[in-house]
Simulated assay, not measured.
Amino acid sequence: MENWEDLQKALIEFRNLRDWEQFHNPKDLALALSIEAAELNELFLWKSAEEADKEKIKEELADVFAYAILLAEKYDLNINQIVMEKIKKNSEKYPIDKAKGSAKKYNEL
């Protein structure tokens, strides 16, 4: 699969074949996304980044993406468009001349 739309279609087909859409309301998708992100974080707890299990990272990251894609579908959001809009917004908040090499928040630059 080469793009978000193909992934979204595959996820929707998977979900629909199992009659799971009834459980996929926006609130529960957002909660599932948060829980999967926490499970991803847990893989790094008390270890260096190099010690984390790459296969488990792959699985948890896939879950994070899957729930985010399904949540975008619930609100009919175009993933490419909303990410590009966010990049544009952040480029205004973090101009290169002030933000390059800095981890400061935009209001501290």
Rank of each mutant, 00 (worst) to 15 (best):
K86H: 03
W4K: 02
K58P: 01
A99R: 05
R15A: 07
A30V: 04
R15N: 11
I57S: 01
Q81G: 01
A103R: 12
K89G: 00
K100N: 12
K74C: 14
D53H: 12
L33C: 11
L11V: 03
K88N: 13
Y106G: 01
K98P: 01
E85A: 08
K88C: 04
Q8T: 13
L11K: 09
E42V: 02
W4A: 09
K88R: 11
E21I: 08
D6E: 12
K47W: 00
Y75F: 15
K105F: 11
Y75S: 11
E85M: 04
A68R: 03
D6R: 15
N80C: 05
K74R: 15
Y106R: 04
W4E: 03
W20E: 14
D97Y: 08
I87A: 14
K88H: 14
A52R: 10
H24T: 08
P26K: 06
E51V: 08
Q22D: 07
I69D: 00
I96F: 09
K105I: 07
W4P: 00
Y94L: 04
G101I: 05
N25Q: 09
K100H: 07
K88I: 13
A10E: 05
L43W: 03
P95K: 08
V83I: 15
E42I: 00
N78H: 06
N16L: 10
S34Q: 10
L29A: 09
A62M: 09
A32M: 12
E5H: 12
Q22N: 08
D63H: 01
E5M: 07
K47H: 05
E60L: 05
